[in-house]
């Protein structure tokens, strides 16, 4: 896909997010909207992946979502990439659905390889997969997305130390650095401090991305790929606006985990062009 098509897809994915969360009357629209450009670029341009889903993913790039609460954006791009029917997005968070509130393998949803939601675990799992790829001589890459508030979980720092020590250089971890978490701004809850310096001092190659500028997302993902295979794990610090694309959801933590009501959903959808067709 070219950049204009990716932007159209991103608009459609944002509509999916609003409609899913509105229909479920709960869920996490804020960071889902913020990460939409990243997910769209990843699934429609960057990943070498096969929507005829295979758990082991041999010979494929593999993606792991650590901050599982932004499941709406992931489900939307998975469905629109062909992993499962887009009509299934209507079942999000409802009884007997494969689209659990937080991603799970339990119901057999294609595209999901491990459950996430309890924070801080995804990077470790991604490292395990990356190690298996090295053992198998598989030169494809492993991608992982984490939240920023999530970095307050200690397991991440265990994983970061490990990946540098063991030279897990087939791994690209992106941090959704929107500066917000449930109780407020990171800086008011628990400051992350000098995040670039921390990752650098842990031995990672650190790149910066403007996560709501599709051109920059594509550019930095390409740079990240080029930085793999050089003895260091790669980190992308991705600045995003939580709620990007819906004016009243932007610049606040208040839409982290809250669904819009009927009027709010209508106002949000009016700002997001239906480019490909709603589910």
């Amino acid at each position: 896909m070219e950049i204009q098509e990716l932007q159209k897809m991103a608009s459609q994915v944002r509509r999916d997010i609003i409609r899913m969360v509105h229909s479920a009357t709960c869920g996490h629209p804020g960071a889902s909207l913020g990460c939409t450009d990243f997910f769209t670029a990843l699934y429609f341009k960057v990943l070498d992946h096969n929507p005829k889903f295979n758990m082991e993913g041999k010979g494929e790039d593999m993606f792991f979502l650590s901050n599982g609460h932004i499941s709406p954006v992931w489900y939307s791009v998975l469905a629109r990439s062909g992993y499962f029917p887009i009509s299934e997005l209507a079942t999000f968070r409802k009884l007997d659905s494969r689209l659990q509130g937080h991603p799970a393998t339990h119901e057999g949803l294609p595209g999901v390889r491990v459950a996430s939601g309890s924070l801080g675990q995804g990077m470790s799992v991604a490292i395990g997969v990356a190690l298996a790829k090295k053992l198998d001589g598989d030169d494809k890459l492993v991608y992982c997305l984490t939240g920023d508030g999530e970095l307050q979980e200690g397991q991440n720092w265990e994983a970061m130390m490990f990946a540098a020590h063991h030279k897990v250089d087939n791994l690209i971890v992106t941090v959704d650095w929107n500066g917000q978490q449930i109780d407020g701004a990171n800086d008011d809850v628990i400051s992350l401090g000098d995040l670039p310096a921390k990752w650098t001092s842990f031995g990672w190659e650190v790149l910066h991305m403007s996560g709501n500028d599709m051109a920059d997302v594509l550019k930095v993902l390409a740079e990240a790929k080029a930085a793999t295979g050089k003895g260091k794990p790669v980190c992308i610090l991705m600045k995003t606006d939580m709620g990007y694309g819906v004016d009243y959801m932007m610049g606040t933590h208040k839409w982290h985990g809250k669904a819009p009501n009927d009027e709010q959903a209508e106002a949000a959808l009016a700002q997001l062009e239906e480019t490909i067709g709603d589910y």
């Binding site: 993913g57 470790s124 799992v125 490292i127």
Partner: peptide, 28 residues
């Protein structure tokens, strides 16, 4: 030696890495 992974004093990370290895078909 190539099939041994020293994780250090970091058991939470070890469990996650094991889950990843198993995802990719290993028996950790």
């Amino acid at each position: 030696p190539e099939r041994f992974i020293q994780v250090g004093v970091a058991e939470a990370n070890m469990m996650g890495i094991a889950a990843g290895l198993a995802t990719a078909g290993k028996i950790p």
